[in-house]
Design a protein around this nucleic acid. Structure first.
Length: 553
RNA sequence: GCGCUCGUAGCUCAGCGGAUAGAGCAGUGGACUUCUAAUCCACCGGUCGCAGGUUCGAAUCCUGCCGGGCGCGCCA
């Protein structure tokens, strides 16, 4: 019996109690949940339903709990029910009922943990979107790891997700980039407002190696070429770094295509139809203060130039016209000021800003080296790139350390810790559990012990077996919550603190295969089922994080 | 000044109103001739920033204050 099944059972028992007592069944919630108590003396699962509805129904919670307990004890699979505190129900399942989880997991395989909460929803998930004027660095990397994991989690919840990277290739910063390349190619110092760093000289060299005639050319002729070629090379490098990181984007969307293709004009027309466009001082404005913005925003400046905001509006409208029900933006905390105006764009376009647009703000990453703060600056050229991090620790450790904590908290990474002491990374604790199971399954095969022959769920009665079973049963709930709250770090916390821990503890206490010449124990088959079920959950969970599940370590 | 956000063990972080607030690292002490010791077990470590409020119950929700980060252009 899974926690979801048990919750349904508790609810149906409550209905029975309400009916026999003549209480209003409508007071019961549509759904309830059971919790796993921290204290093992409080049973396998606990329900607080009596506490939640007792008062509403005019019954003392403990009295309601007593009646509920009596009813629950009659249900199949329930071994014992106790009432505790103000009205908690502490429920213990029998071994066979709990053990059934392992079979369920193994049979579901790679689909275990998936759900259909978001099925039918077309989601556009935009993240990273770093300017194509420099390599991907640690500041962007958190969103790459979290965003890609969120893509996987939402997909597991049934959504049809398109991951998208918005390329800011239309503004002044790409001109600065081109002038920086031009200067480097001609051996001149970087322009005042330009970009510095080895990557500038490397890209400049790559361009001039392919076309030596560019050196010494006047700026008017050379700059467009440096811009086009540099942009192309930079984007290629960004794309390769992200692919190496295991982060995939379905769509690379160029801002230029909005400006050149009439998309901004089209967006202004759409917004005008909704009645939120006005002119003032020769500029065209969007009255975002009709909704959730603190000031109105200019779309077309009085000199006729389109603003960045105009592109934002056009981009949003473009996404909606491509059929996305939900446009999710993953932004760093330094962009939180955009929430109001982006939401207002959706509202001005006649959409529901609560549903069609969603802006997730994540706190930034702080870097320290040996405890001392490190200030990174692209201008100063001391940035730490994604590639450098990958060279130092590899994609698994990098992704895991960035994806395991909530984006609500500023993450402090110590460069010394992650580069020197990578074996301390908890990702290896999780991966090791998976590799250990694979080794066990290989040994079983060698000893010709076939898991599939027998599965007796009531054999798994050891406390550590029961704990592991309960943990495996939680996975679908963890995935569902991670999807609902857009918090993929919950997967990592669960794998690390629950699954891997409970497996290692089980492994320590429960021998599976015979030692030496001993006969095969009565537990072997059932424990192999449990091991395979655990392996399935670890593999599925690691996949949601974009981390590999190695068979050997 | 206005707004957003964060504040939990020495450090890095969990904890979508539930019972005695958890984990890793660091520190101390144990467990490998036997399925992978990248493991397990025990100990040490807390006024959940502060003060009120909401209620059967608050680290969690609300208000105020203190402290850190960030944002407030016809810039991109």
């Amino acid at each position: 019996m899974t926690p979801a099944n048990l919750a349904d059972t508790v609810l149906s028992a409550a209905r029975a109690v309400f009916e026999t007592r003549g209480l209003d069944v409508a007071l019961l919630p549509a759904a309830t949940t059971v919790e796993r108590p921290r204290n093992p003396e409080h049973g396998d699962y606990a329900s607080n339903l009596a506490l939640q509805v007792g008062k509403k129904a005019g019954v003392v919670p403990r009295e309601l709990a007593t009646a509920l307990a009596e009813e629950l004890r009659r249900r199949a699979g329930v071994e014992a029910v106790e009432i505790a505190g103000p009205g908690f129900l502490n429920i213990r399942l029998d071994d066979a009922s709990l053990g059934a989880i392992a079979r369920l997991v193994v049979e579901a395989g790679s689909a275990y943990g998936h759900n259909s909460a978001l099925s039918g929803e077309k989601v556009n998930l935009e993240f990273v979107s770093a300017n194509p004027t420099g390599p991907i660095h640690l500041g962007h990397t958190r969103w790459a790891a979290v965003g890609d994991s969120l893509r996987r989690v939402l997909t597991a919840a049934g959504a049809e997700v398109t991951s998208e990277y918005y390329i800011n290739d239309a503004g002044a910063q790409v001109d600065r980039f081109a002038r920086s390349l031009f200067a480097a190619a001609n051996g001149e110092p970087a322009p005042e407002d330009g970009y510095v760093g080895d990557y500038i000289t490397e890209i400049a060299k790559e361009i001039t190696d392919a076309d030596p005639g560019l050196v010494g050319q006047p700026a008017e002729q050379a700059l467009p070429i440096f811009l086009a070629r540099g942009y192309e090379l930079m984007l290629k490098e960004i794309r390769e770094s992200l692919e190496r990181f295991g982060v995939h984007f379905d769509v690379w969307f160029s801002e230029q295509t909005l400006h050149g293709g009439g998309a901004v004009e089209h967006a202004i027309e759409e917004l005008r139809k909704q009645g939120h466009i006005f002119e003032d001082g020769g500029a065209i404005w969007l009255r975002t203060t009709d909704f959730t913005d603190d000031k109105d925003r200019v779309l077309i400046r009085s000199n006729g130039e389109k603003t960045y905001f105009a592109a934002d509006a056009a981009y949003y409208i473009n996404k909606r016209e491509r059929g996305f029900d939900r446009c999710i933006y993953l932004l760093g905390a330094d962009h939180h000021g955009y929430i109001g105006r982006l939401k207002a764009i959706a509202a001005c376009a006649g959409d529901d800003p609560q549903k069609n647009i969603e802006i997730l703000i994540g706190q930034l990453v702080n870097l320290v080296r040996g405890g001392q703060p490190v200030r990174l600056s692209k201008r100063a050229g001391n940035i730490i790139t994604l590639d450098e991090m990958l060279d130092a620790v590899g994609p698994d450790a990098a992704r895991y350390s960035l994806a395991r904590s909530s984006t609500d908290s500023t993450l402090t990474l110590d460069i010394e810790e992650i580069t020197k002491n990578s074996s301390d990374n908890p990702v290896f604790y999780v991966q090791y559990a998976h590799a250990r199971i694979c080794s066990l399954l290989r040994n079983a095969e060698e000893k010709k012990i076939n898991r599939a022959e027998v599965y007796d769920p009531s054999r798994l009665s050891h406390e550590r077996e029961r704990n592991l079973l309960k943990t495996l049963g939680e996975f679908p709930g963890v995935v569902a919550t991670a999807a609902e709250l857009r918090e993929p770090h919950r997967i990592a916390v669960y794998l690390e603190e629950r699954v891997a821990t409970d497996y290692h503890r089980f492994y320590d206490a429960c021998q599976v295969l015979p030692k030496g010449d001993e006969p095969v124990s009565e537990f072997a088959q059932s424990r192999l089922w449990l091991a395979e079920a655990t392996r399935t959950v670890l593999a599925n969970g690691l996949d949601l994080l974009g981390v590999s599940a190695p068979e050997r370590m």
